[in-house]
Write a protein that binds this DNA or RNA. Structure first.
Length: 970
DNA sequence: GTAGGGTTAG
């Protein structure tokens, strides 16, 4: 009872104020109990304080129950309840309470309106906000500076900048706070220049800026990278005496860092001599943002020397710096320090650790950090997904994405970006579409990152129309969007479109960056557009980007792909620093043109310059060795590869098998292939072509069978080679089987209309195989196969289906008909080919000459031979001369045939002499017969037919002596 | 006042 006298109501009020400040619920409840014990419950002031104390501690329900028991609810009770909801960001609730209050007799005060205006602003609720404004005017409170600023703030926060400016101009007095609301408002809504204009205006009206104004101004300068204006504000800071204000100085550090003026940023920090970690962090962040990882880490050391311990932000930046410098060791040291300092449970630290490990390829550590995180936020999940994507584990990434959704976390824009990246790498269009639908449903489609990666995913999966649609409907495109489009078209062989896009983007005022140049150079290379390539090269020099390593390599690559080795070599020699990629680019150029000696010379040069050969280099040098048939050299290479442990690499494996197969070491090739744990289409194809090229047709077909049994899908090269073998063997049945395979796989389309390119989805382009020309290669191989097997009906049927017949198609068909002796078809087709603009080649002329000779069309044949040289400028080979001699001698023009023989530009071969031998028999020319026979016998010993023909000549000429001696010698 | 995950490229 004694205590009852000593504790006053005022004491309880101050006690509750303390509880409220410390959000100490337990003490609030204890105090509540005491108030009840003392019988003070009916005291209005205590009731209101209790309501506030409960509300700020999160016990809104208790606060409301208590509010309902209050005996006299006054303006203060209502306002404090509304205020508390606003503080807890429960704006809707606050507004609802205000509406209830309006129905009572209690009149709102200035404080009530300030709280309600804040709620309206955050709700972006313009109509209720305007009603509140009107009510204020009606009550004559609009002259109050406090209310005026609250309303100004309401319009700004809700984004109604025009209304805010009108209200601002109507304010009775514009104090510095009013100006600051306007200035920070413009800044936050991106109207950066406008906020700087306001700062100038306020000074003209003799309102002196305070630290809030200066911070806003400096921030504006940062985002505009406006160094001069920034320096101007810096001098204001000094004049007005804010140069020891931690916040102002930190913003200054940030400004100088963003403007890449590290010395000035440092000067600010050192001059400040503060013991706070924050300005140091601003400095470190600046270095990280400018990709100066080493300097950032140095700064962390220096800061500790000044006796300032790092905080979480410092560690986060430090980890980023380690990613930049690729210094995993230092990263792990930082990890230890983070654990020691007890920051390992802080989400941002954990997420940055994951980023470090993921970007260092340490996926296990990434997962470990993730598993240890107590609260896995959307950011943590995204870090994990991103880690899997970087690691190439795209399926795993998508699994995680699903798991994250199952756990009830709604993906945000960044999470979608990672998920889509996985889809793009997996080339799974269906999953990509699912994510796209989710993105639309959740309203993330306007995010630039999302748009760009969506575009990339559609292009990577071959859906050009959808990709173009995404691009067109983006709210705005940036340079990345254009780069993605350019790269996407090039990837599918539409390089000319890429080049048009490069021009178009510049017409639309978009400046190319490093990546644009890299992508465009690639397009120039694939399109062999060297003049455009030179233009791009000039632009690169103009922008001073030619010293960039990747750009330099791309220029070399462009020139080599265009076959301009001189220019490529010139650029290569001038590269400021050559990497293994530079060497590979130039080597690839020489390799492409079959200049094997140069390839090996360059490889030697790079060895001299202490570069270690990588898989790409080995592939080129192996190819060069084997085309030069440097077998010993090849084997040395193989040993070196084994020594380096590269023999398992898929590219190397196929190159080595190809090398052995090419050199005719087919046993070795076969053994190597059989010993592989898994074989791919490239290795099998290398073996099959090896067998085919060395005339081992049966082994080639057998390998094709084994490849199918191995479960490997052949590619067009495999099919073309196998069809050739079938033709050589006249293996019609096998050939037809291959035909039905390629049809089933859709490699040829019997109803081939020309596709609108954005409508169709192309098969995944195989690295080694150019997409363009796929179909005609298969068609030509099939036609040739049917021709060789004598099935001219099938050959001609396919010929009619081919979308565009090229010179090879015509040659194959003509040769086929010629082999059948079908003069009529050959002459007709020859005529048709010429009319469609085909310039006849040597193969077509051989076909013509051969049918003319068999059909006795001497005049036509002779005319053709003359036209071949005079009109079509095709140089005849020995085969053509042989045919001509055959043609003449069959027609009895033996002398003319001999004249051809005597004027031959080459040495005659077995066919020449056999032809003349046959002719001699037909026309009974013993001398020419004997001469021919002697040559045939010399060139092909044991040619029984020649003996028989010669003996017949002797017998028919009535020369028994010669006849019997020839028989004896035989 | 400083701070966590996300887009294109050899």
């Amino acid at each position: 009872m004694e205590r009852k006298c000593t504790i006053s109501v005022e004491h309880f009020v101050s006690l509750l104020l303390k509880c409220r400040k410390q959000r100490d619920l337990a003490r609030s409840m204890e105090t509540h109990l005491q108030i009840a014990l003392y019988g003070y419950e009916a005291q209005a002031v205590l009731g209101n304080s209790l309501v506030q104390a409960y509300a700020v501690s999160g016990c809104m329900h208790d606060a409301h129950s208590l509010f309902n028991t209050l005996v006299d609810v006054d303006e203060y009770s209502w306002t404090s309840l509304i205020q508390v909801h606003v503080d807890c960001r429960e704006y809707k609730h606050a507004l609802a309470l205000f509406h209830i209050m309006e129905k009572t007799v209690v009149q709102p005060s200035t404080y009530t309106f300030v709280a309600v205006a804040k709620a309206c602003g955050h709700l972006k609720a313009l109509d209720p906000g305007f009603c509140v404004h009107m009510k204020i005017v009606k009550m004559g409170l609009d002259g109050d500076s406090y209310i005026g600023n609250a309303l100004l703030s309401m319009y700004i926060v809700s984004g109604s900048l025009v209304e805010a400016q009108i209200l601002f101009d109507l304010l009775r007095t514009q104090i510095v706070v009013s100006w600051n609301i306007l200035i920070t408002g413009y800044l936050e809504h991106g109207l950066v220049e406008k906020s700087l204009e306001c700062i100038d205006h306020m000074q003209l009206r003799n309102v002196s800026p305070n630290e809030i104004t200066l911070i806003a101004g400096l921030k504006a300068c940062s985002s505009l990278r406006a160094v001069l204006k920034g320096r101007d504000l810096h001098s204001k800071v000094i004049i007005l005496g804010f140069d020891m204000d931690l916040s102002v100085e930190t913003t200054l550090v940030n400004l100088y860092s963003k403007c890449v003026l590290p010395t000035e940023a440092q000067a600010v920090v050192f001059k400040l001599q503060a013991s706070s970690v924050v300005p140091w962090n601003a400095l470190i962040t600046g270095y990280v943002e400018n990709n100066s990882g080493k300097e950032a880490l140095g700064c962390i050391d220096k800061m500790q020397l000044h006796g300032i311990p790092p905080n979480v932000v410092t560690f986060v930046c430090g980890l980023k710096a380690c990613v930049i410098t690729q210094d995993l060791d230092r990263g792990q040291e930082l990890h230890c320090e983070i654990v020691k300092a007890g920051f390992d449970n802080v989400p941002s630290a954990g997420n940055s650790l994951m980023a470090l490990y993921a970007k260092s390829g340490a996926i296990l550590e990434t997962c470990e950090v993730f598993n240890k995180l107590p609260n896995k936020s959307i950011v943590s999940w995204t870090s994990l997904i991103s880690g899997f994507v970087d690691y190439g584990a795209n399926e795993k990434a998508l699994d995680c994405f699903e798991k994250m959704c199952v756990e009830g976390l709604a993906p945000d824009a960044a999470a979608f970006v990672c998920g889509l990246k996985a889809c793009g790498s997996l080339e799974t269009a269906s999953m990509g579409r699912e994510l796209h639908a989710m993105i639309l449903a959740m309203g993330h489609e306007r995010n630039l990152y999302v748009g760009n990666v969506l575009l990339d995913t559609y292009l990577k999966t071959g859906f050009f129309a959808d990709g173009q649609g995404v691009f067109n409907f983006m709210p705005f495109q940036n340079v990345v969007s254009w780069n993605t489009l350019i790269a996407g078209y090039t990837e599918y062989g539409f390089s000319s479109d890429s080049l048009l896009l490069y021009n178009q983007m510049q017409l639309e005022g978009m400046f190319p960056d490093v990546t644009t140049f890299i992508c465009t150079l690639k397009a120039c290379g694939s399109a062999k557009e060297v003049s455009m390539g030179r233009q791009v090269h000039a632009s690169i020099v103009f922008t001073g980007l030619e010293s960039d390593g990747i750009v330099g390599n791309s220029i070399v690559d462009m020139y080599t792909k265009c076959g301009q080795l001189k220019e490529a070599h010139y650029v290569f020699d001038l590269l400021p620093s050559k990497s293994i990629v530079s060497w590979n680019s130039i080597i690839a150029g020489f390799s492409e043109l079959g200049l094997s000696e140069d390839v090996l010379r360059l490889v030697d040069e790079m060895r001299i310059e202490h570069f270690s050969l990588d898989t790409t280099t080995y592939v080129y040098s192996l190819k060069a060795c084997c085309s030069l048939k440097f077998i010993a050299h090849c084997q040395e290479h193989h040993e070196e590869i084994i020594l380096k442990g590269l023999e398992g690499h898929p590219f190397i494996v196929s190159a080595v098998v190809d090398m052995y197969a090419n050199c005719g070491l087919l046993r070795e090739a076969q053994d190597l292939l059989d010993g592989l744990p898994a074989r791919n289409v490239i290795v099998w194809t290398a073996l099959i072509t090896g067998y085919a090229e060395h005339g081992l047709s049966f082994e080639a077909l057998e390998s094709f069978e084994r490849m199918i049994l191995d479960g490997i899908l052949p590619n067009i090269i495999t099919y073309a080679c196998t069809l050739k073998v079938c033709g050589n063997l006249s293996a019609l049945y096998k050939g037809e089987e291959v035909h039905s395979r390629v049809t089933k796989e859709g490699l040829i389309d019997f109803h081939a209309e020309v596709y609108g390119k954005s409508e169709c989805r192309f098969p995944n382009p195989d690295g080694a195989v150019e997409f363009e020309g796929t179909e005609s290669l298969i068609f030509n191989s099939l036609i040739e196969m049917y021709c060789k097997c004598g099935c001219m009906v099938d050959a001609h049927y396919l010929f009619n289906l081919i979308p565009v017949a090229d010179i090879l198609t015509w040659s194959a068909l003509l040769t086929g008909y010629a082999r059948q002796g079908d003069t009529e078809h050959v002459l007709h087709l020859f005529d048709k080919a010429r009319k469609t603009g085909i310039k006849p080649n040597e193969v077509m002329f051989l076909a013509i000459l051969s049918v003319c000779s068999h059909g006795g069309l001497v005049g036509v044949g002779q005319h053709c031979f003359e036209a071949m040289i005079g009109e079509y400028l095709v140089l005849p080979a020995l085969e053509h001369y042989n045919c001509l001699m055959d043609l003449l001698s069959r027609a009895g023009k033996l002398e003319e045939a001999v004249a051809v023989l005597e004027n031959l530009p080459f040495g005659p071969d077995l066919v020449t002499w056999s032809t003349l031998l046959g002719a001699s028999r037909n026309w009974g020319d013993v001398d020419l017969g004997r001469q021919s026979f002697e040559w045939v016998a010399r060139l092909d010993e044991g040619n029984a037919a020649a003996y028989i023909v010669m003996s017949n000549i002797y017998a028919e000429a009535g020369m028994p002596a010669s006849y019997s001696s020839l028989i004896a010698s035989y």
